[in-house]
């Protein structure tokens, strides 16, 4: 007389119910999202703001101050945006390298046995990271770089000239009052790069300091008692252990640097944002231009993030 336990009716069956509820929920969300999107499209159409990308192929009509790829006003908008993107990447990559070097130097300096060096590192970090980056960029550009002498009075070394218009390398010549050279970096690029490097280095220094501090003192002492020099101790014993803590922190600093590069408009550098602004004003396609901008910065930051995550995987402790 054994009765099989009767399976409960479907509305109380724990096997189907969750699926059912989730399914209905997903359907409802889908309907609402579809309604919102249709509504958005309808309203955009009513205002004549429907997304269109054909303008990207029209001639830009404006010039750019500095480009790596050749550019002139008869080329289309997408090439202008590309030239801006290349300039942004140029300053971001140079900035990442510079900020990492300077930041590591200052971060390790705060463990120096030299008291003066230690204090200077602390002062640097506290001063720089507490002043808004925009103000620092304006300072570097208008106060420092634009105070450089111009024309004939420019600072000259064999093969190198530093003038108000930029740094010229490789036999610069003064033609009609303007310096010309095969390789040149404008002061706008210089000011933006200096500002980004100096600012981000302060944060990186803190990340590096935190990483080194996380290595127990005993490791230093053990290395010293083995007769390793302080530099060798740092390189072979402390840094490999500190990197595990440093890399994740660096990731977010790198991402900030890439995003902060859009402050270039403050110092007249032709970056992606600056080109986009002109494009927006000439075409009136605000939504499309903003989408391109958002997408570009998102991709740049995701790439940085992916690279740093790969690096993180390399420096993590491998347990055997």
């Amino acid at each position: 007389m054994t009765s099989r336990p009767e399976s409960p009716p479907w509305w109380r069956n724990r096997r189907y119910l969750p699926w059912l509820v989730q399914g209905v929920g997903a359907l409802l969300i889908g309907v609402v999202v579809a309604f919102l999107l249709t509504n958005l499209l309808l309203n955009l159409t009513a205002r004549g703001l429907l997304l269109s990308w054909s303008w990207l192929g029209q001639p830009a009509g404006f010039d750019l101050a500095e480009t790596v790829l050749p550019f002139d006003a008869s080329l289309p908008y997408w090439q202008a945006m590309l030239a801006g993107l290349v300039n942004t990447l140029r300053v971001v990559i140079a900035g990442l390298v510079g900020a990492t070097l300077l930041g590591t130097l200052i971060g390790t300096a705060s463990f120096s046995s030299n008291g003066l060096l230690r204090r200077l590192a602390r002062i640097y970090v506290e001063v720089i990271r507490n002043i808004p980056l925009l103000l620092q960029l304006i300072f570097w550009y208008f106060v420092v770089f634009l105070s450089l002498p111009n024309g004939r009075d420019a600072l000259q070394l064999p093969g190198i000239v530093l003038a108000k218009s930029g740094l010229f390398l490789g036999s610069p010549a003064l033609i009609d009052g303007v310096w010309q050279a095969p390789l040149r970096f404008t002061v706008e690029f210089g000011a933006l790069l200096t500002g980004l490097v100096v600012y981000t280095a302060a944060f990186i220094a803190e990340v590096v300091r935190g990483g080194i501090a996380s290595v127990p003192n005993g490791q230093w002492e053990a290395a010293t008692s083995l007769g390793l020099s302080p530099l060798l101790t740092l390189r072979r014993i402390v840094l490999p252990q500190a990197l595990r803590v440093i890399v994740p922190g660096l990731n977010s600093q790198y991402i900030s640097l890439a995003k902060n590069s859009s402050l270039a408009v403050a110092c007249g550098f032709t970056d992606l944002y600056s080109v986009a602004e002109t494009t927006l004003n000439q075409t009136g396609r605000a939504i499309e231009v903003m989408l391109i901008l958002l997408g570009s910065y998102l991709v740049i930051d995701l790439v940085i993030s992916a690279l740093m995550n790969a690096l993180n995987g390399l420096v993590q402790l491998r347990e055997r």
Binding site: G61, D63, L64, A73, V265, A266, S274, Q282
Partner: peptide
């Protein structure tokens, strides 16, 4: 940046076939 000024300048300088460097500020 973001004014009709940029376009006018580019147009006129092309007419004069004169190269120039536009430094743009916000």
């Amino acid at each position: 940046t973001g004014t009709s000024t940029e376009l006018n300048l580019a147009d006129r300088m092309r007419e004069l076939s004169a190269a120039y460097t536009p430094l743009k500020f916000q």
